[in-house]
């Protein structure tokens, strides 16, 4: 079972990891412990690998800092569900191998603290007796995610998907 951590609209990358806690400020070994340090200080201590982050609209706007989603990955986040994503954040998620699902309906239905089960292959999310269907990411990105991340895809094939 995964715990749902739900946040609002327009959560920016300064919220996810404030600039002063960048790895090159505090070290590669501990920057992730400052995830959501301003917005939700208990998050980094309480989050468990496999938990699911839920955002509203325009998730991850602002700075291109990939270490923001990287902090989340280090904390064991493999899946994010949002109503919509800011562009650079979306690319960074795919590059890091975090799956970015998009769904207004599921975001509205989920509550913070919910316990859910998500089948990554089918995109079926179950909460108690309820089932929700998440649409998989576009084929180009799925191809990359199947190899782990876009970085892994390029390393293996020496080209980008579809090239």
């Amino acid at each position: 079972m995964s715990r749902v951590w739900k946040f609002g609209d327009h959560i920016n990358t300064d919220d996810i990891l404030p600039g002063k806690y960048a790895p090159f400020m505090v070290g590669e070994d501990r920057f992730h412990t400052f995830a959501f340090a301003h917005l939700r200080p208990e998050f980094a201590k309480e989050v468990k690998p496999g938990d699911i982050l839920v955002f509203g609209r325009n998730a991850g706007l602002g700075s291109s800092r990939e270490y923001a989603p990287e902090a989340l990955r280090k904390l064991g986040i493999q899946v994010i569900i949002a109503k919509s994503y800011a562009r650079i954040f979306f690319r960074n998620l795919v590059n890091l191998g975090i799956i970015p699902f998009e769904s207004e309906e599921v975001v509205d239905a989920l509550e913070d603290g919910d316990r859910v089960e998500l089948d990554l292959e089918t995109g079926v999310l179950v909460r108690g007796g309820e089932r929700f269907a998440l649409r998989p990411p576009p084929p180009f990105l799925l191809e990359a995610l199947r190899e782990g991340s876009l970085l892994d895809y390029y390393k293996k094939h020496g080209r980008f998907p579809g090239e």
Binding site: G62, S63, S64, R65, E66, Y67, P69, I88, R91, N92, N95, L96, S149, L150, L151, Y154, F160
Partner: peptide
């Protein structure tokens, strides 16, 4: 590797920001 890379559009360049992985690729 900075979101304000859109600035290069001032001179008619397609400037865009990306994360470390995209930039490395």
């Amino acid at each position: 590797s900075d979101s304000h890379s859109t600035t290069y559009g001032a001179v008619g360049a397609f400037g865009t920001g990306m994360g470390a992985t995209d930039i490395a690729l």
